[in-house]
Write a protein that binds this DNA or RNA. Structure first.
Length: 232
DNA sequence: GCGACAG
DNA sequence: ATCTTGTCGC
């Protein structure tokens, strides 16, 4: 099996990683409306780990946004490129994700990431990082609030509450995707706006809390990791 | 200095 | 993320 390489110049310590974030964050474009919900394509990306064997597997799954049918999928397996450090998740996940996206062989459309975009201590979470590196439209949909706070959005599907930073600025939104279920945490990655990011997220959650894109990518990268371990 | 902290 | 049994509910 072919293991992907860690990119040249990839940071090897926390200081180097933060310097990369500070150098790239100015390139984020927020506020573009982007294509209407339910048109074009949406791609989910996710990553699974086997730290014991130093392996990482990423998956990218592209859906027709109107039908949510799978139209393309790809995986990539490599060595873990960075330890997990809160605020530096992108350096752990992106090398494998980039390889999986390239292997799709077809334009991804809006990329839905498992994590944050602008809702990040330095306004440069993994969704924004991926967007800047690829030029793709990206959003972040996280399952936990990370360092941010929010009021109760209310129990109904579609209800929202601002995710705010220390200065009261809205960096993302807690979005209830299923009635009476814990919300997800949506933020802009690149070349999109927060309203559009939430609208797309709702469209991708007709049945479960987490977007279909993320669920499919999660299953696929777990399978890819298991297959990689099996072939050792 | 200590605790919290996406995946 | 990942380690893990049973259990409650649709």
């Amino acid at each position: 099996m072919m293991l992907i390489d860690i990119p040249d110049g990839w940071p090897r310590d926390e200081a180097g990683a933060r310097a990369v974030q500070d150098g790239l964050r100015g390139r984020v474009i927020a506020g573009e409306p982007g294509p209407p919900v339910g048109t074009g394509r949406v791609t989910g990306v996710d990553v699974a780990y086997d730290d014991e064997r130093d392996l990482v597997a990423a998956a990218a799954v592209t859906l027709d946004a109107a039908t949510l049918d799978v139209v393309a999928r790809a995986t990539a397996v490599g060595r873990v490129a960075f330890p997990y450090v809160p605020g530096l998740l992108a350096f752990r996940e992106l090398p494998a994700v980039l390889a999986a996206l390239e292997d799709l062989g077809t334009p991804p459309g809006l990329v839905v990431c498992d994590g944050y975009g602008l809702a990040h201590p330095r306004r440069f979470g993994l969704a924004s990082h991926l967007g800047v590196l690829t030029g793709l439209r990206t959003i972040g949909v996280a399952k936990n609030p990370f360092v941010f706070r929010h009021d109760d959005p209310g129990p109904q599907r579609g209800a929202t509450a601002p995710l705010t930073d220390g200065d009261g600025e809205e960096v993302g939104r807690a979005l209830r995707t299923r009635t009476d279920v814990k919300p997800v945490y949506v933020s802009v990655g690149h070349r999109t706006g927060l309203d559009a990011a939430c609208a797309h997220t709702l469209h991708l959650t007709p049945r479960y809390r987490v977007p279909e894109t993320t669920r499919l990518a999660d299953r696929l990268c777990r399978d890819a990791l298991a297959a990689a371990v099996r072939s050792l």
